[in-house]
Structure formats: structure tokens, C-alpha cells
């Protein structure tokens, strides 16, 4: 009996360690981009605009700027924010899931690493959705499908222009706000 209990406890500990080690990697996904940081961002932005389902650009963030202001040299990171009221609306209406506004708007991060390659970082929306009940799970399934479209690049098409944030318009801080995000 003692052996059984020790076995169960050891198994539980090992499971916790395994989850602890892999959970972080499961929550986020990372792929290499064949383009420069700016071109990758621009292509994603244009894909977001073409994706339909209410998707709109919400903003463009440069998280390295305050770090540089502190005198630290850091490789470039640009975060694209996109939102679709079609998907965010039901989640924000429900008191039980409204706290998920913490994850809004959707973010896709484009960054360079010290190996010189450009990477695209996304959240594993499918996995996260499954953790918060059927409403969120179903919504996130749609988000995952659209997110795949955001990252489909056609290298034969010329590089589009970066869409820079402008006050009151799409891509700016207030752009998608009118859409409910």
C-alpha cells in the first residue's frame, strides 16, 4: 500500500514538473519569417485587413523604445494589435469571461533575435480557449483559423507599405475602438 501511495505521489510530482516545463511553450508559438521585421509586420497588417470577420488593426507597439530610452541596446520588436468585435463582443458581454479583456486586443509580435533571424510570436489561442469554457473555446477556434490566414505570405507579391498608426483611423489607437474592442 505504501508503495502505491509513493508511486501516486511521485507520478503527481513528475506530472506537475512536466506541465511546469512545457506549459509556457504550449501557450505561445514562434515561427521564422523570411522577410525583414518591417515587411513581416506590413504583410501581417494587410492580411488582417483582408481577413474579413470584422478584423481591424488596433495599433502598433514598439516595446523596445522605453528600454532604449534607458540606454540599453535591444533588438527590434514590433507588436501588431488586431481586433474583431465579432469575436470579442460575446466574451466581453458575459460577466464570467469579461476578465479575458486582459488578452485583448489580439497581439502578434514580430522580432529579431541575436541569430539575425526574424521571428513571429503568437499566442496559442486554441489552447487558451479550451481553458475557459465552451463559449471562449468556440470563439477561439474561429480566431485560430483567422490567425492562420494572417500568417500566410505570398512572396511573389511585392512588399506592402507598413500601416502606421494615425489618430482616429485604422491602425491607430482609436481605430477599432469604434468596433467594440
Amino acid at each position: 500500500m505504501l508503495k502505491l501511495i509513493i508511486g501516486i505521489v511521485l507520478g503527481a510530482i513528475l506530472s506537475v514538473v512536466a506541465i511546469w516545463q512545457t506549459a509556457g511553450k504550449l501557450m505561445f508559438e514562434e515561427t521564422v519569417s523570411p522577410f525583414t521585421v518591417e515587411e513581416t509586420v506590413a504583410r501581417i497588417q494587410h492580411n488582417v485587413q483582408a481577413a474579413g470577420n470584422g478584423w481591424a488593426l488596433f495599433g502598433l507597439r514598439y516595446p523596445t523604445r522605453p528600454v532604449e530610452a534607458e540606454g540599453v541596446s535591444v533588438l527590434p520588436v514590433i507588436a501588431i494589435e488586431a481586433c474583431s468585435p465579432k469575436y470579442s463582443g460575446p466574451i466581453l458581454k458575459d460577466d464570467r469571461t469579461r476578465f479575458l479583456s486582459l488578452l485583448m486586443p489580439c497581439k502578434i509580435s514580430v522580432y529579431k533575435k541575436s541569430d539575425g533571424k526574424v521571428y513571429i510570436g503568437t499566442m496559442n489561442a486554441g489552447l487558451i480557449g479550451k481553458l475557459f469554457g465552451p463559449l471562449v473555446a468556440e470563439t477561439m477556434e474561429h480566431v485560430v483559423a483567422d490567425q492562420k490566414k494572417f500568417l500566410e505570405f505570398d512572396p511573389t507579391k511585392p512588399a506592402p507599405a507598413l500601416i502606421l498608426p494615425k489618430a482616429g483611423g485604422e491602425g491607430g489607437g482609436g481605430g477599432a475602438a469604434a468596433g467594440g474592442c
Binding site: T36, E38, A42, P158, A159, A161, L162
Partner: peptide, 10 residues
């Protein structure tokens, strides 16, 4: 004249 995504000459 064509520019790249960052507005530089392409």
C-alpha cells in the same frame, strides 16, 4: 520608384 515596407528605396 518603389519603396519597401519601411519606406526605403526598393
Amino acid at each position: 520608384v518603389v519603396k519597401d515596407s519601411a519606406g526605403r528605396r526598393a
